[in-house]
Design a binder for these strands. Structure first.
Lengths: 124, 124
DNA sequence: CTGCGACCTGGAGTGCACTCCAGGTCAACT
DNA sequence: AGTTGACCTGGAGTGCACTCCAGGTCGCAG
């Protein structure tokens, strides 16, 4: 199993060292292994998981959402049922967000057409 | 031309009175008319414009983006060329955001399938 | 053995977008 | 005339998600 020094993990995930440590403190990903001297050693599993976190954050989920998700994953009392529900909930929320964005896009298109067309007139 | 008291403008735009005043202070929309006593009187033009602002904010544009847009609209030295460009730039950025979201959606779908399928096993 | 650079910690600081507050004004109702 | 409620102002406070910092440790190159 490949492992990564902090700098390399940072590079691969696109997060700063600080943010990586911050996420870890918040419990967003597993206890990272350490060398005897206390330096972090990230596994590729860690890196992959952080990749997912970044993805979800890009998708607009907040830190607390991710924490809840981790909570569900950790204490899987009664199987991972809760996890699926949580993910699906976010999935539909995401669809909502995309819909909103598309509305905004349409409005933008309208405005662009308006300004391109009626270039110099004052008001209608 | 219809006009609105602050409370009504708030209701119609979905923004709080505070936020409305905040946006006005930042110059995101025109100088609002006042009564002799200093109370604001919003025109329907104001309300419509704020609607657009809300839309763009929903779409992920920051306050500074909106300020730049207003700047372009106000001093139209050389026509509204800058405005169109700015809107189109944001349009393509929006497309990018939507793409990102779709990626996140796909990843989510994968995870959902994974957790629904391999419900109880430890690791692969 | 001395530097150097990468890393560690806890805690303070930052930027954004609001949101709240105290203290005051005004118009209308009773 | 007094009370109420919507509104005003400038400025302070909030929550989020980082980001920076001081002061310290470790391992290796020269």
């Amino acid at each position: 199993m490949t492992t990564y020094a902090p700098a390399e993990a940072s590079e691969r995930t696109g997060l700063s060292l600080d943010t990586l440590r911050y996420y870890e403190r918040l419990g967003l990903f597993g206890p990272v292994r350490r060398t005897s001297a206390g330096r972090r050693v990230y596994s590729d599993h860690d890196v992959a998981w952080v990749g997912l976190l970044v993805c979800l954050r890009n998708a607009g989920l907040g830190i607390s959402d991710l924490q809840r998700l981790m909570g569900r994953l950790r204490d899987r009392s009664g199987g991972p049922t809760g996890v699926v529900e949580l993910l699906e909930e976010h999935r539909s929320r995401l669809h909502g967000e995309i819909a909103k964005m598309n509305v905004a896009l349409d409005v933008l298109d309208d405005k662009i057409a308006h300004y391109r067309g009626a270039a110099d007139q004052s008001k209608k």
